[in-house]
């Protein structure tokens, strides 16, 4: 089994947006966004993903990435 990597920090750096600012714009707590950014999250709601894509002006594929075990 591979794993899903969250590249939110890369996208945030590209858009030059801070964690707190993004959290306010998508209306979730910075603590929860931090959980998502560090890859500790177990699931992500479509609504959250949509809000992030909307604010960062990107596609879900830019934030999430699938890595197979052999690639590691």
């Amino acid at each position: 089994m591979g794993e899903i990597i969250v590249n939110l920090d890369v996208m945030m750096a590209k858009r030059k947006i801070s964690l707190g600012e993004l959290a306010t714009k998508i209306d979730i707590t910075p603590a929860n966004l931090s959980v998502l950014k560090t890859g500790k999250a177990k699931a992500i709601r479509f609504s959250t993903l949509m809000a992030i894509c909307n604010v960062l002006d990107c596609q879900p594929g830019d934030i999430l990435e699938y890595k197979t075990e052999t690639n590691n």
Binding site: N32, V35, K42, A43
Partner: peptide, 8 residues
């Protein structure tokens, strides 16, 4: 509960 807590 854990799953719910870690669903963002």
């Amino acid at each position: 509960q854990e799953e719910q807590d870690l669903t963002i």
